[in-house]
């Protein structure tokens, strides 16, 4: 079921792949391009989330929300889905605001699927 949601998410313009991961960087499910290793991506995003949460808590910012990383040739958007996280690989030139809007129903579906 999670895979099916990710496959549909991959059809959204600007999405280059997606992986659901636990907070410690373990892969729950992933639909990614051949050249992207889901385990490596999940581990890297898990570590990044740890650093970001440490920073947010040190600055007394409550509640974990989206994390966005932008590079010269693409980006990564990490969104909370229940107790897990969804990391979306973003194509270069994607409209981030639109993508976040379009990703919302998928995060809701994933949160429901993970809670089952």
């Amino acid at each position: 079921m999670i895979d099916e949601i990710l496959i549909k998410l991959n059809r959204v313009r600007g999405v280059g792949g997606a992986v659901v991961l636990t907070t410690d960087g373990q892969v729950v499910a992933g639909v990614l391009r051949q050249e992207v290793d889901d385990a490596r991506l999940a581990a890297a995003v898990g570590t990044l989330l740890g650093h970001a949460q440490h920073l947010a808590s040190t600055l007394r910012l409550a509640g974990g929300g989206p994390l966005h990383v932008q590079g010269e040739l693409g980006g990564i958007l990490a969104l909370p889905v229940g107790k897990a996280w969804l990391a979306i690989v973003i194509d270069p030139g994607a409209n981030l605001a639109l993508l976040q809007l379009e990703a919302r129903p998928f995060t809701e579906q994933l949160a429901a699927a993970i809670a089952l």
Binding site: G64, V69, G71
Partner: peptide
């Protein structure tokens, strides 16, 4: 994390709470 996806050099990051 960007290295794993071929995203190139880092330009920005943000954390929203």
């Amino acid at each position: 994390a960007l290295t794993t996806t071929g995203g190139g050099g880092l330009g920005s990051w943000s954390v929203v709470t």
